[in-house]
Amino acid sequence: MKDVLLIALFAFLGAAAAGLLGAGVLRLLRHRSLVVSLSVVAGVAVTAMLAGTLTVAWAMFLSSHDLYVVTTVVAMAALVSLATAVLLGRWVAAHSRELTLATRSFGDGGTFAAPTGQPTAELAELARELAATSAKLDSSRERERALEASRRELVAWISHDLRTPLAGLRAMAEALEDGMAADSGRYLRQIRTEVERMNGMVGDLFELSRIQAGSLTLTPARISLYDLVGDALAGVDPLAREHGVRLIGDRIDEVPVEVDGKEMSRVLGNLLINAI
């Protein structure tokens, strides 16, 4: 039993020395390729085995022939281990490069297509995560394109809606300037109405910019839904009468709601104006 423990001690000391040396080499080469790292690991394993064997052989005073046989066997194992490590490293490195090339499609606005047949579970998991991230980026790009399209459409609508009252204001101003207005008071009242309408449009644009910037602060309060709708209907009633539209709001229940009364009135007013 004592001899076995002694042999184990000598083998451990020889293998530990080789392991420490291999750890130092790995630290120095930690920024190199995977092929180099795997080769070093395989070399450390074989060197540790050889060191432990030679230490035990030296301690047991084996014959030179026996030592030569053991060394030859270990050398053959080292060659096979190194060859296997290099092949495995090159295989994994090749698939890693494929994954790297596929990942570059993110920067070009493309869709990530994971290479098939990943050699390790870690690379396969990384490919799945990249595919999921690509799907999220595609969804974000679609939302961004939709928002940009809505912004362009909004600018076109606002330009059209502003052009109409501006044309009317210009015509009425020219009529007043030339003295062609039969009822100047009515023209002035109409100009004031159009100016208030344009001021409302500008206010809507300002509110929209605050919403997009995230700086719109809401102040919720308890208010009756009946009163909320009634105020909105009263605000657009003159415009509805002008266009021959009849508004009915007596079927609204008096349900209490928790909303920002000012902003909700703006929302309902915009909806009613668009509908009219």
Score class of each variant (00 low, 15 high):
residue 89 G to L: 01
residue 84 T to R: 09
residue 78 A to G: 15
residue 36 V to C: 04
residue 87 L to D: 12
residue 58 W to E: 08
residue 35 V to D: 09
residue 42 A to I: 02
residue 90 R to W: 02
residue 60 M to I: 06
residue 85 A to G: 04
residue 73 V to N: 10
residue 71 T to R: 01
residue 62 L to M: 07
residue 72 T to E: 12
residue 58 W to V: 07
residue 72 T to I: 08
residue 50 L to S: 10
residue 85 A to S: 05
residue 42 A to T: 03
residue 42 A to M: 02
residue 48 A to M: 14
residue 74 V to N: 12
residue 54 L to C: 05
residue 54 L to H: 09
residue 38 L to P: 01
residue 88 L to V: 08
residue 44 V to I: 10
residue 83 A to N: 12
residue 69 V to N: 10
residue 34 L to W: 02
residue 65 H to W: 13
residue 52 G to Y: 06
residue 69 V to F: 08
residue 74 V to Y: 01
residue 84 T to L: 10
residue 76 M to D: 08
residue 40 V to M: 09
residue 46 V to D: 04
residue 58 W to L: 14
residue 91 W to K: 10
residue 61 F to L: 12
residue 58 W to R: 11
residue 91 W to S: 11
residue 82 L to A: 11
residue 41 V to E: 02
residue 74 V to L: 14
residue 44 V to D: 01
residue 49 M to S: 15
residue 53 T to D: 05
residue 39 S to P: 00
residue 81 S to G: 15
residue 75 A to D: 08
residue 60 M to W: 12
residue 38 L to Q: 08
residue 69 V to E: 12
residue 55 T to P: 00
residue 76 M to G: 06
residue 86 V to P: 00
residue 74 V to W: 03
residue 54 L to R: 11
residue 57 A to R: 09
residue 73 V to S: 07
residue 60 M to F: 08
residue 48 A to R: 09
residue 51 A to I: 02
residue 62 L to G: 02
residue 52 G to M: 03
residue 85 A to F: 03
residue 42 A to K: 01
residue 86 V to Q: 08
residue 36 V to W: 11
residue 66 D to K: 03
residue 51 A to M: 06
residue 34 L to M: 06
residue 78 A to N: 04
residue 52 G to P: 04
residue 55 T to R: 08
residue 47 T to G: 15
residue 75 A to T: 14
residue 85 A to E: 02
residue 75 A to R: 12
residue 78 A to Y: 03
residue 75 A to G: 10
residue 77 A to C: 06
residue 76 M to N: 11
residue 81 S to R: 13
residue 44 V to F: 01
residue 73 V to Q: 07
residue 81 S to Q: 07
residue 52 G to T: 05
residue 82 L to G: 10
residue 81 S to W: 00
residue 50 L to D: 02
residue 75 A to Q: 09
residue 84 T to Y: 09
residue 58 W to M: 07
residue 80 V to F: 13
residue 83 A to Y: 05
residue 84 T to P: 00
residue 87 L to Q: 08
residue 74 V to H: 10
residue 40 V to W: 07
residue 36 V to Q: 07
residue 69 V to G: 04
residue 37 S to W: 01
residue 53 T to P: 00
residue 54 L to V: 15
residue 75 A to K: 03
residue 43 G to S: 13
residue 63 S to R: 11
residue 86 V to H: 06
residue 80 V to Q: 06
residue 70 V to F: 13
residue 68 Y to R: 15
residue 82 L to Q: 06
residue 52 G to Q: 02
residue 44 V to E: 05
residue 59 A to S: 12
residue 39 S to H: 01
residue 44 V to K: 07
residue 55 T to K: 00
residue 88 L to D: 11
